[in-house]
Simulated assay, not measured.
Amino acid sequence: MTLTHPAYEQLRAVTPSASVLLADNPSQMTLQGTNTWILRAPGSSEYVVIDPGPKDRKHSAAIARETGGKIALTLITHQHADHTGGIDRLVALTGTPVRAVKSEFLRGDGTALVGGEVIEAAGIRLTVLATPGHTEDSVSFLLDGPDDAALLTGDTVLGSGTTVLESRDGALADYLASLNNLIAVAPGRVLLPAHGPEHRDAEPVIRYYLAHREERLQQVRDALVKLGPNAKALQIVAMVYADVDKRLWPAARSSVQAQLAYIRSHG
């Protein structure tokens, strides 16, 4: 039987070089759970792991089992615990080196990731793309294998829903630039997100994300006209996100704060 999303803790092949293990940590913020991507060219004896997932012994054990412990490298898309919590357990089980933008997540001889660098391991080629916005340390990866091309986007672009932005000044400007940079490299690539299902054509999904973010930005501008220029973020959330479950309003507030900072600096 062919596996389909979601298939918890079962290795599901998606492209010739990419398979996914879905962690059993569903929530409103993680959708069906966190995707751990396991990469290797057909015939390679080693693997590259993207995001070891949450602190969950069952999930770490599943990664170790499916790779036989032969992990050449583990890469981190960003700092959030549902992506990084499993680092130390996986290192204990397999000895994998770990690379990330932030030094606190480096293990073994792993060095900090740098946008634009090319990593070759397990018979595949990965190009690191700096894609800040969701977090300042967010990165995506271009995957080029012998028989396929894909784009691993972490939480920058999800398989469904939308992405929460940091509340920091500059987050939205960074995010819009990240989306445009991803659009430029997306044609012909499969979208492999950190949450939700994959998409066979990455470009239209990313274009939707850009259009949606610009639509939300205009809604915040319109809300400021009605509420006044000094309106608080939560007031705007109540107006713009009125159709969204109130349990998600704290996350929406973070995105609105980023949008307000953008509007006040860019107009």
Rank of each mutant, 00 (worst) to 15 (best):
residue 19 S to V: 02
residue 24 D to G: 00
residue 29 M to K: 08
residue 32 Q to H: 14
residue 25 N to S: 07
residue 30 T to N: 14
residue 21 L to Q: 13
residue 16 P to N: 06
residue 18 A to M: 06
residue 28 Q to D: 13
residue 23 A to M: 08
residue 27 S to R: 04
residue 41 A to F: 09
residue 33 G to C: 06
residue 14 V to I: 15
residue 20 V to D: 11
residue 23 A to R: 12
residue 35 N to Q: 06
residue 22 L to Y: 10
residue 37 W to T: 11
residue 22 L to W: 05
residue 25 N to W: 01
residue 29 M to P: 00
residue 45 S to Q: 12
residue 38 I to C: 07
residue 32 Q to R: 13
residue 28 Q to Y: 05
residue 14 V to L: 14
residue 31 L to I: 09
residue 26 P to L: 04
residue 16 P to F: 00
residue 40 R to A: 14
residue 18 A to L: 03
residue 33 G to Y: 04
residue 39 L to Q: 09
residue 26 P to I: 02
residue 14 V to P: 00
residue 37 W to I: 14
residue 13 A to P: 04
residue 37 W to M: 05
residue 20 V to R: 11
residue 45 S to M: 02
residue 38 I to R: 05
residue 22 L to R: 15
residue 45 S to F: 01
residue 31 L to Y: 08
residue 17 S to L: 05
residue 42 P to E: 13
residue 34 T to W: 10
residue 44 S to T: 04
residue 37 W to F: 07
residue 27 S to I: 05
residue 37 W to G: 12
residue 17 S to K: 09
residue 36 T to E: 08
residue 26 P to E: 04
residue 40 R to I: 01
residue 44 S to C: 13
residue 18 A to D: 05
residue 42 P to G: 15
residue 18 A to K: 03
residue 21 L to E: 08
residue 29 M to L: 15
residue 44 S to P: 09
residue 16 P to C: 13
residue 29 M to T: 14
residue 36 T to S: 15
residue 43 G to K: 11
residue 15 T to F: 06
residue 29 M to N: 11
residue 18 A to E: 01
residue 39 L to K: 14
residue 21 L to S: 12
residue 27 S to C: 11
residue 28 Q to H: 10
residue 28 Q to I: 09
residue 36 T to R: 07
residue 18 A to F: 05
residue 14 V to E: 10
residue 25 N to M: 03
residue 35 N to W: 07
residue 18 A to V: 00
residue 17 S to F: 01
residue 20 V to W: 01
residue 21 L to H: 04
residue 37 W to R: 12
residue 14 V to F: 01
residue 26 P to C: 10
residue 20 V to L: 14
residue 35 N to P: 03
residue 33 G to A: 05
residue 21 L to I: 11
residue 14 V to N: 01
residue 21 L to M: 08
residue 29 M to F: 14
residue 30 T to D: 11
residue 30 T to Q: 10
residue 40 R to E: 02
residue 42 P to N: 11
residue 23 A to L: 06
residue 25 N to I: 01
residue 22 L to E: 12
residue 42 P to R: 12
residue 34 T to S: 15
residue 14 V to S: 03
residue 40 R to G: 13
residue 37 W to Y: 09
residue 36 T to D: 07
residue 35 N to T: 14
residue 32 Q to L: 10
residue 20 V to K: 02
residue 43 G to Q: 09
residue 14 V to D: 03
residue 15 T to C: 04
residue 13 A to T: 08
residue 31 L to H: 11
residue 37 W to H: 10
residue 28 Q to S: 06
residue 23 A to P: 00
residue 16 P to V: 09
residue 42 P to S: 14
residue 33 G to T: 07
residue 30 T to V: 07
residue 39 L to W: 02
residue 26 P to A: 01
residue 34 T to V: 02
residue 44 S to A: 15
residue 37 W to L: 15
residue 17 S to C: 15
residue 35 N to S: 13
residue 40 R to M: 06
residue 34 T to Q: 04
residue 28 Q to R: 11
residue 16 P to S: 11
residue 33 G to R: 04
residue 14 V to G: 00
residue 37 W to P: 12
residue 21 L to P: 10
residue 30 T to L: 09
residue 27 S to Q: 08
residue 44 S to E: 08
residue 41 A to T: 07
residue 24 D to V: 03
residue 44 S to M: 07
residue 19 S to R: 11
residue 16 P to Y: 05
residue 32 Q to A: 15
residue 27 S to E: 01
residue 21 L to G: 10
residue 36 T to K: 09
residue 36 T to V: 14
residue 18 A to N: 07
residue 15 T to P: 07
